[in-house]
Simulated assay, not measured.
Amino acid sequence: MLTIKEIEEKLKNEHEPAEWIEELKNDQRAGVHKALARWQRNYEMKEIQLQEHQEKIAFDRSYAPFTEALVAGVDEAGRGPLAGPVVTAAVILPVDSPELVGLDDSKAISKEKREQLAKKIRQVALAYSIHIQPADKIDKLNIYAATRESMEKAVGELAPQPDFVIADAMSLNTNCQTASVVKADAKSLAVAAASILAKTTRDAIMDTIHNDFPMYNFTKNAGYGTTEHLSAIREHGPCEHHRKTFEPIKSIIADETSILI
């Protein structure tokens, strides 16, 4: 008879139901039942992920204008923060991408998992591009226009060019047909991939900016208006990476100017 530890090790290498696994139900040992329950939960979770993966692929292919059409997904990271760039990404995935089972909207995945997926996306993508729109351009254009321009540039830099583009809640002007889909990062595999690349790239940028401006703690807040971040802005004033047209930074600058006058 196998020990509980041996059974646990054997279960780790089983990815599909098998007769010997079914027979474990008759084992009287509590440890065996716990190991079996664990394996069953993991198996069911993987089955759900596989089903969701296929649904995301089907969603993307539903927009393909012809059988071999290349469908790109586009998403952004960083529209809401008070500091740092907006980063957009465009991705074209192969129809079959089993390596990306479990890929989801970047907000629903841990930082460690996002980094792992970002590597896989770069490896399997037929094409991807990333565009960085800095804070001064956001102030010049406004956040909506700056994000849209960045998305369009990301699409334009794809090689090969897509036949159709799915964008997350943004109407784009590109050389091919596009669709603006609300919450596309939860429905489309390509948009979810773009979401991961945009988020991981922006996080890395904010970590780098933090090294130059540690007083704002960008590594922790990523530029969002946390209580700590707002307090640092009031104490030190905004830096070159802050969005001067965003409140409350706009009012803080105005107050400082009025005091000087």
Rank of each mutant, 00 (worst) to 15 (best):
T88P: 00
Y144A: 13
R202D: 07
D105T: 08
K12R: 15
H15K: 15
A118L: 08
I143T: 03
P98V: 04
L24I: 10
Y216E: 09
E22Y: 13
A167V: 00
V165Q: 06
L197F: 08
A35K: 07
A90V: 04
D185S: 12
L126G: 00
E228Y: 10
K113I: 10
S62N: 11
H131W: 06
S110L: 14
L11I: 12
I196V: 15
S171P: 02
H242L: 02
A30N: 14
R243W: 02
I249T: 06
A118I: 08
E19S: 14
G31P: 00
E112T: 13
E149S: 09
M170Q: 07
N175Y: 01
M215C: 13
S188M: 03
I21T: 07
L103R: 01
M151L: 07
A72E: 06
H131K: 07
E14K: 15
A89Q: 02
A69S: 15
D105V: 04
K187R: 15
E256Q: 14
I253N: 11
R61G: 11
A64Y: 03
A108K: 15
F66K: 12
K111Q: 12
E44L: 10
E23K: 11
A125Q: 06
E22C: 12
T257F: 11
I261S: 14
S180T: 07
E152Q: 14
T200L: 10
E44Q: 13
A90M: 01
E76T: 13
L117W: 07
D139T: 07
T226V: 12
E6M: 12
W39D: 05
Q51M: 13
E9P: 06
N175E: 04
Q54N: 14
A58E: 13
A64K: 01
R29F: 04
D185W: 07
E47G: 01
L117C: 06
L141V: 11
H53T: 04
P238N: 12
L70P: 04
L197E: 00
E152I: 05
S106T: 14
R61L: 15
Q133N: 05
R38H: 00
F246M: 01
A146N: 09
S251G: 02
A90P: 06
L197K: 03
M1P: 15
V91H: 05
E76G: 12
N142C: 13
A184Y: 00
A90E: 02
L158F: 01
I205Q: 02
I21E: 03
H15C: 12
R29I: 08
R122D: 05
N13R: 15
